[in-house]
Amino acid sequence: MTVKQALPRALAEGGETRPAQRKTPFLARLWRDAPLLLMVAPAAIVLLLFTYVPLLGSVIAFMDYVPFLGFTGSDWVGWDNFTALFSDPSFWTAVWNTVQITFLQLVLFFPVPILLAVLLNTVALPVAKRFVQSVIYLPHFLSWVIIVALFQQVLGGAGVINRFLITHGLSPFDVMSNPDTFKLLLTTQSIWKDAGWGTIIFLAAIAAIDPALYESSAMDGAGAWRRFWHVTLPGMRPIIVLMLILRLGDALTVGFEQILLQRDAVGPGAAEVLDTFVYYNGVVDGSWGTATAAGLLKGVVSLFLVLAANKIAHRFGEEGVYKR
């Protein structure tokens, strides 16, 4: 979530500067900075091999890629893979499921960390605040395998809730394998895992609000609700907008590991999303070209979404991810 914010600042940071670089000849600079270049080399090589080269490798979206023939031997097929993709109903199922899940997350998940942060901020007792924080941050660090297992144990067919329903004469309801409620289940899991962790950034935003604003508004007779509405919320607005933009940029990324783990329980009709579509078509079925085409399409649309969201933010006078 915080990943992309680092970008704009990193280029403008201070620190030690090499003096009078223009006057030093190139070879002298090379000799002087060779150790630094050597230090960057391992990371640069890893990024080159596993980010930049594969990025170029996305051209197989325009190929009838056959692993045996490789990049050089496979035939170019133009837009055929995309045509095949668009006429594949399971692709559209994946797109529709992805959009639905993103929408649910935006409506149900997004406000939770904001509300939690506001609630936590009003806790005056430091011990209580720290305890609740420690508890609600924890699930963020657990793997999806563990999270799904925990949900299985509580909400599954033989889980705590259903045992309770059965012993009290009510009909059991297995949400873990019900396609109709699957998307709500995913959202609930996401909230359980990451809503607490998400409060960190909003708590920081609240902490940055000048306490004098609260004090003077209280002097002017504003109650708790009006202080929230006229001081807290406006103070958090830039961060909320920023988070919304970042979320929009990830609109097509909806919990790949989480869904992959539970897809078999409810079937692809309810659970197939773009990322799992790419995985099953490419790695499992070997339709490398179509799968890469779907992945490439997703990447391009995501980039476009970030840029568009940022433009909208600028129009509303917010700073967004990068400056104009």
């Binding site: 680092a6 970008l7 270049l37 640069a44 990024l47 197989i60 692993p67 490439l296 980039l303």
Partner: peptide, 23 residues
């Protein structure tokens, strides 16, 4: 070099090309 590193924050390659690279 810094731009080379930072640009990877904006976009990543898809799963399939990375898989083929590892292979």
């Amino acid at each position: 070099l810094l731009s080379f590193v930072l640009l990877t924050l904006l976009f990543g390659p898809g799963m399939i090309p990375v898989y083929l690279m590892v292979k």
